[in-house]
Every structure is written in C-alpha cells, then in structure tokens.
C-alpha cells in the first residue's frame, strides 16, 4: 500500500478526484500494527473506486498536526480536499468499506 508524505499530501490527497482513505499511523503504536493489514484488505477490496494511503505521523508531522491527530490509528476519508469522515481507534474492514462505497 502506498505511503503519503507531507510533500505529496496535496497532490495525492487534496487534489484527488476520487475519495481517499488516509491511515495515520506510527511504528510504535501497537493498535496501528493491527489496523495496517485491515487497511491493506480495504485497499484490495475497494479497487479503483477510492485511493487508500498511509501517513507515518513520525515522519510527517505537518499533516498530523494540521488535522489535529491526537490519537492513532486515526482514519480519515477525504472528498474533494475535505475531511468527510473520521474514525478513531482500530476500525473494521466492513465499516471502512461501507464508508468508501457510499
């Protein structure tokens, strides 16, 4: 699954013509290790309908701060550059897919 960084966030997420799911995570976060494979499955299942990206909050503090991340994993859905949905804590594949397939 592709990473998004502070450098690529604008092009990859905000300018995307498709919905984008961003998984804010870090290596030291246990529950994030659980969320990772779930997000991989979501990416596989959703196909071309949406983009699924992960953002390492350690390496990309600008966007972590901009979006007020204070708990990880946090999953945000972006549509047309705006946050349209946010999930805090480990979130199931079904819940995420339902949101992306809306």
């Amino acid at each position: 699954m592709a990473d998004v960084t502070d450098q690529t966030f604008d092009a990859e997420v905000l300018q995307s013509d498709k919905p984008v799911l961003v998984d804010f995570w870090a290596v030291w976060c246990g529950p994030c290790q659980v969320q990772g494979p779930i997000v991989e499955e979501v990416a596989a299942a959703v196909g071309d309908k949406a983009k699924v990206l992960k953002l390492n909050v350690d390496e990309n503090p600008v966007n972590a701060q901009k979006y007020g991340i204070m708990s990880i994993p946090t999953l945000m859905v972006f549509n047309g550059g705006n946050v349209t949905k946010q999930f805090i804590g480990v979130t199931s594949k079904d819940t995420l897919l339902a949101e992306l397939n809306k």
Binding site: C29, C32, A64, M70, S71, I88
Partner: peptide
Amino acid sequence: LKGKGVSACATCDGFFF
C-alpha cells in the same frame, strides 16, 4: 473529546502530547 485529548492508550497517543 475522545481522540481530542481523551485517550485510554498512552503508548499510542503520548507522542501527540
């Protein structure tokens, strides 16, 4: 305020503080 300063996991969220 969950995820906005309320947390039950310091190891996950301490970094943001």
